[in-house]
Design a protein around this nucleic acid. Structure first.
Lengths: 338, 338
DNA sequence: AAACAAAACGGAACCGATTCCGTTTAAGTA
DNA sequence: TACTTAAACGGAATCGGTTCCGTTTTGTTT
């Protein structure tokens, strides 16, 4: 593989000139630029990214920490971030914490990214405590936390107001006249699952409605967990007319099971999901869901990390509000009663 | 940040000794090792991976090219590869070709990986022609192709025998007594979709069964595409008792739509999917599917790239046979008739 | 104790870029 | 034409590791 020296020799110029010719706004004569261009093509020259990184002290790599690839939430995030950073010529390396069940393992997973000299890291970990996150941030400055929030707004925490999202779902169902609720939550060790749940029940409480504790199943965000949770729910043999699910995957599982038991979703039971993933519009019936603006969040986090690591000056927001998308899986309770 | 020189100075040894102490099987006395360890800890030393890469001419990065993150197929692949390579201390960088619709864009996406000096590349592209792949391979030696096959077996092509998989599905349904078939395929520009389809209809042909061309919908692997395809299918108002779907996502969409139309899947209509993704066991009814051993394929491809790039000597297979997993969505046609 | 092989070691050379510094060339002004 | 100033340039120093080479130390054998 040809090096910059080979190019310089063939073009009859110094290595400095070749290097300068590769970046804009550097004073190199058109004549030299042309000679260098010819030489590069003749030698099929491609700059060595490792040498570049070493001398410029920029790896042009951003690390991305995700708790799994399975969920639509993080898939969307991954997809958006990859697109956004690739456009800027940056590369991402991945750490999937799927198998990591303890804080220690989660941090080991992070160290795997740090050791590679990423310029910055985007971390979407719903489970590490805020204390733990603070420790991490002090040890490693260029890190942003996605889908996490602090009590007071912080420029390095990008969050969706899931509490408000939970309230939106409750408001919608109460508005439809429902009074008997069931809930399938995500893993309650995760901050976002807590917030969604809390928002939901807080709104109900304000309206004087309480949910039978037996009808709250602490499930998870996976399809399979949703399946098990609904089965458990139905096993209780207690009436409910509305079901709020922690995310769309578990809502889809719920719809599927309810359907197979001959219960008509959108008529006998209203189901509301969360996240508004791509396929929510295509389930049968189409799923009413709280839309979480993951894409905006991801893009803004990318902007911030670009500002931080490469001196760009892109606009950044850190707080994102969900909104409700009403489809066919939720229906007025009055119709049901008659 | 402390460098190896700082460590050497503090430990009172040469830089060579420090470097040697970091790799096993290098002759360094226990005394020196100890002094160096102490110095490293005192300085909180972490080797600079870029400098390391430059001098060792190994980036320890493997590039991964995938056509999208959306499908379960590639998600599983990504997950397996990430796990396998991380275990070996390698890092992966991603190129998602989601938006790439032309060969040119797909190759640009590949160049994005090459420019980063990956030691090797794993590419799972179902759509580039074999000629195009050959060109790529000649330009860039350390590349393996996943889920692609050549007429004759090739050590750099890792493939699942999808043709046999298609036949398995057909054999199963014919065995159940079905004679009236409908098919929803993947995108026929993709090699694997072609093979699955060809295997299926070839088996039927051998049994003297032909499929009404109107009941073959050229759909896609996405849930949404499946939804549209089934609707189109039902719009034809032609009878069929068995439906073969190009993958599980579209099969799930089919089940959902059929169910909502009051058609009982597993009784009136048998549905067989392909891939056997994790949630296939949890749909209602549970999905009969052709199991594609993506995990094995991915692991073996990792082994091969480790052998190729780092002189390891792991066992490698390149051909993988699918098998059928019978669940509740397929049923004998005799029961239906009575 | 002498002789010798093997282990341990220090340090220079090298990997392939970027950047800084001092010099040459070109352009503009009087 | 002579002088000034800026643009263009060549090449050395640098980034932080690995590895090779020649020397010193250690340990074993006679």
């Amino acid at each position: 593989m040809a090096t910059i020296k080979d190019v310089a020799k063939l073009a009859g110029v110094g290595v400095g000139t070749v290097s300068r010719s590769m970046s804009v706004n550097q004073s190199v004569s058109d004549k030299s630029r042309q000679k260098i261009k010819v030489a590069m093509e003749a030698l099929n020259y491609r700059p060595n990214s490792m040498a570049r990184s070493l001398s410029s002290k920029k790896s042009n790599i951003i690390g991305l920490w995700v708790p799994s690839f399975s969920g639509s939430f993080h898939r969307k995030m991954l997809q958006t971030i990859e697109e956004e950073l690739r456009q800027k010529g940056k590369h991402i390396i991945l750490a999937n914490a799927e198998g990591a069940n303890t804080d220690e393992e989660r941090i080991k997973c992070l160290d795997y990214l740090i050791e590679r000299d990423c310029d910055g890291i985007l971390m979407s970990c719903p489970e590490l405590s805020l204390v733990e996150l603070a420790k991490i941030a002090s040890r490693y400055p260029n890190i942003l936390f996605l889908n996490r929030s602090l009590p007071e707004p912080n420029k390095n925490f990008f969050s969706i107001n899931h509490y408000a999202g939970g309230r939106l779902a409750a408001e919608h169902l109460v508005g439809l006249g429902h009074t008997e609720f069931a809930i399938i939550t995500g893993r309650m060790s995760a901050q976002d699952a807590q917030n969604r749940h809390q928002g939901f029940i807080d709104y109900l409480l304000e309206k004087g409605i309480t949910v039978d504790p037996e009808l709250i199943i602490f499930g998870g965000y996976k399809f399979t967990q949703g399946t098990l949770a609904v089965k458990e729910l139905l096993g209780k043999n207690k009436p409910f007319s509305a079901l709020f699910c922690g995310n769309d995957k578990s809502a889809m599982a719920a719809i599927s099971i309810l359907h197979s038991k001959g219960i008509q979703v959108g008529k006998e039971v209203s189901v509301v999901g969360y996240d508004d993933i791509d396929i929510a519009a295509y389930t049968a019936p189409a799923l009413t869901s709280v839309h979480a603006p993951i894409e905006s969040l991801s893009r803004n986090a990318c902007h911030k990390i670009l500002n931080l690591c490469y001196g760009e000056n892109l606009p950044v927001e850190t707080q994102f509000e969900p909104h409700l998308v009403v489809r066919k899986s939720s229906h007025s309770v009055n119709t049901i009663k008659k």
